[in-house]
Structure formats: C-alpha cells, structure tokens
Design a protein around this nucleic acid. Sequence first.
DNA 1: GCCGTTTTCGGCCCGACTGTTTTCAGTCG
Length: 569
Amino acid sequence: MLISNKEIADTFEEIASLLAIDEANPFRVRAYQNAARTIRGMGTELSELVSQKSDLSRLPYIGKDLAGQIEEILRTGRSATLRTIRRDIPGTLVELLEIPGLGPSRVRKLYVELGIRDRDELARAAEQHRIAALPGFGEKTEQRLMGVLRAHRQKKGRFSIADAAKWMEPLVEYLRKTPGALDVLAAGSYRRRKATIGDLDILVVSAPGEDAADHLARYSEVREVISSGMTRAAVTLNSGIQVDVRSISPHCAGAALHYFTGSKAHSIQVRRRGQRLGLKVSEYGVFRRDKRIAGKTEKSLFKALGLPYIEPELREGRGELAAAEEDRLPDLVCADDVRGDLHVVYNAPGPSLAEWIQAARRRGLEYFAPAFHWPRSPRKNHRLELQDYCEQVDELNAKRKSFTLFKTIEVDIPKDGTLRLSASILSQVDLVIAGVAGDFDLSRHKQTARILKAMDHPACTMLARPIDRSSTELGAMHVDMVKIADHARERGCLLELDSRPDRLDLADQYAHVAKERGALVCVNSVAESAGDLADIAFGIDQARRGWLEARNLANTRSTGKLRELLGVR
DNA sequence: GCCGTTTTCGGCCCGACTGTTTTCAGTCG
C-alpha cells in the first residue's frame, strides 16, 4: 500500500502537536510543522521521489533526520517517533488542540491536572465547573469552551472561493462606508486565490483613531463578535465564516497588506530574509534599527528586500523568493489572455448552440467547444442527436468567420482505459474530451495506467478533470500526476483545468507539475449555463497559483494556432 | 530539527488581543 503525501504530512503534524503538548523544544516542534507544510505543497508524491532515489533532504525544511523518517514511514507504514511520543501522552490530545483558545500549554494542564484526554471528557469537566478552578483558566474561559464545544458539532470546514466571494464583496462595500476609511482591501487566502478559504481577512486603511471594529459589529450579517480591539476585530457571519478586520494607517498599508495576505510560510521567509539583511519586517513596515525604510506599498517592501514584486498567488513559500531573487518569476497568465473555452456542457435542457455563441461572444471569446456527451453504449437516437448537433455547428460556423465552434464529444474512460469510438463518429467531430466518471477507487497504479491508456487513443484531445477531486477534498482519486503530465506532453494531449468552484481540478500544485513537465493545460469553465461561463476566472486563479504563463495554456492561442496545435481542419 | 551573504553552532517572525494577571502567559494569525 502506497503512503500518500497527505498521510506523511498528517503524521508530522501530529508529532508536532504532541511534542508541543509534551513541552519539547518549540523549534523542534516548528521543524515538524515546516516539514508538513512543505509536503502538503508538493505536486510530486514522496513515494515517487524515493523510488527514483532522489535526495529528500534537498527539499525545504527536510533535513537528514526527517528524510530518514519519511523513508521509514513509506517503508513500514508507521513512524517510530510518533509511536514513542504516544507512549508518553495520549494521541487524542491532538483533537483538543484544534479547539480555538486551547494551545499546547492549556491542553497539557487539562491533561495533567484533570486527566482530560478528549472532547467528551473536556465537555463533561466544563459542565461540572472543574475548568474554571484551574490556574490560568477562569469562569469566562470555561463558558467559552462550552460554547465552542457545542458549536463544533455543526462546524463547517473550509468554504469554496466562490462562496467566499459572495460574502467578501458586499462586506468590503459595507466597510468602505466606515467613517474615515480611505480604502478597504481584501487580504488573506482570498487574495492569494486559494481554492478554499477558511476565513476572510480584510484591511481598513484609515487615519489613526478611527474605529472599524465598531462599524463591523453593526453589519447586518454578523452573528457573533468574537473579539474587538483598537486595531483588530473578529466576527462570525451568519454563513458560519469568520471575518478578521484590521485597521491600518496609510503609511504602512503596503506592509500590512503584505503581512495579512500571507501565506504564513511566505511571511516567515520574507522576515527571515529581512533579518539576514539586518532589517526588521513587520506589518508596520521594513525597519533598519528604528528607522522605517519601506512599507507604504507592497512594492516598496519587496524592493527594500532586494526583490521584485511577487504576485499574491505565488506567495505560498514554494520557492517564490528564490525565483524572485534569481529574476525568474513567471509572467502569470491573466483572464484577458483567454481566447476560448474548450469545454462547456451541451445537453438537452441547457442553452441552444445559438445561445451559447451569444454568451461566449459577449465574453469576448473567439472559439468554443460545446461538448456533446457520448455514452459508452450509444443507441440510435444518440447517433441522430450527434448528427443533428454536428450539422447545426457546421451551419453556424459557415455563417460567422470570426467565431468558431468546435464539434466536441465528451466520453467516459472505461475501467480498462480503452476508448471505444467508431471511425464514423471520429470522422464527424473535431475534439474528444475524455474523463474518468466512475471507478474512482482503483489503486494509484491502475488508475494512472487507465488514464495513460485513454490518452494513447489518437483522437483524445484533452483529459478532463485529471484528479477528479472536489475542491474541498483534495486528492479524491489517486494518480501519478508526473506520469500523466509526461504522457500528455508526449501525446500532445491537453490537461484540463476544470474551473467549476467545487472542482478546480487540476489543483494548483498539479498545474505546476504540468508546467514543469511541459504539458499544455486548458482552463475551461465546464459551464452548464451562460452564467457559469464567468467561473473560468476561478480556473485562471488556480493556473496562476500553479505558476502558469499564457504560453502554458492551450486556449490563449488564436483560433488558427489552436487548430494547428490540435490538428483540426 | 533545520539552516547558513556573521555557515557546522547558535540561532530560529512578530505583534495584538484576551483573560486572569496585578505585569503577563497563552493563543492566534
């Protein structure tokens, strides 16, 4: 059984948590956390690297010891380190650490003083008022813990970026009306355009003394005020998402925006770089001794550190500082570069072809692929419908020279990977999109082989949703993306980035793998109605997070270049 | 436990808020 990166990262995270509770050296704790973060951000499986005899200690924050531990976990399926720590403290304490307000120190105290090992025992102790009596705790903490434990049962995890946008945009508009507000800026993972968002971070730029917290508390969607101070406030909205708002003054707006945009890994790397240059970087600016030398804009902050501007989507601590230093940051693709959409869903109750064209042209597109779903065992009416579809497309294409519809079918990849498409069907259509639609739980090896086989079909233009994930649950299907990307490059097959906000598949790190391996990506809306065409922006966000440039996408090409690329008449 | 333009030892990001303190520890982002 192959061990995934996620399992290894989870193991390191658990070791870090238990070490922290065990009062180990805090820097050792952080070392495990840093390593876990590195592993989560990787596009390549560690098991793959090990089988290639790669030196794992070359990965950031992975040294000789942790490289050995990774190999041990891959080989034996277990971690001796974790087992040793669990002998001293119960592993269930980790779930207590996830409770807001409880850190390692308090969890330890709860365990040592009251023998509390998990949520249930904590809830019981709180109800019996045994918490408030503990030193360092109090009446208020006990009350809050009870509330948190109750709320935890209905707690929502992360939200899709599309949902986050629905809450972020009106709130930003509302905060603009804060008395004295000069500007309101969305920061955090929302600004970095992560596929999923845990909370909303917002900066209110205003003259000192103005109180944004007060204004925020009166927003109609606020369910609960969590904290409220002079410079920051936190609330929960009715949707369940938490909002953190900071008031900042204009002269340090850039430094604050940079810091609150994160990511944490990026910020730490930036501050460390500052340290090496004898500078202190904080949300208030860049300082040499006590003198502020930059911070009004983000650009000035980067410049003070000897770096060019780094786009928010790249700030994940995945090598962007080194790239910036060596002047090899990517020239990221943007929404305006997209010239066509090569996958929308064409079916009976949806828009007609004429309506699709109208919607696509309104968005400034030059070409379009309404995909006709071709079943595995087609019947006579399917053949007739496809024929009718192709005739309509030909007619519409003949009418307009400035806009092209591609005759496209989408087919399911069967378990054995063999696409069964008759010559008569293939002679009718321009593009074939192939995607896995069932049997998601094959072993990684079999799943990968199935997909490689499908791409071997000479008519296969594009692999749809390569990982078949939902965006809130990364890695739903286990595949070897490096092999898939290599094969895609060799076969001239495109890798789709499905822009539906609950998909966003290719995930950002796999888009990066595609680029590294030289495979072409195609960002499509996979819209079912005209309104969904705009979702392509979410796909472009993920492409940018994967360091993709316009040249890495197929659908940034002109109609002529694309025909040439895909071998369409 | 990692890391290195003060490099193999001695550092490790930095500031705000809360609650329980009576000057600060713990937690969070």
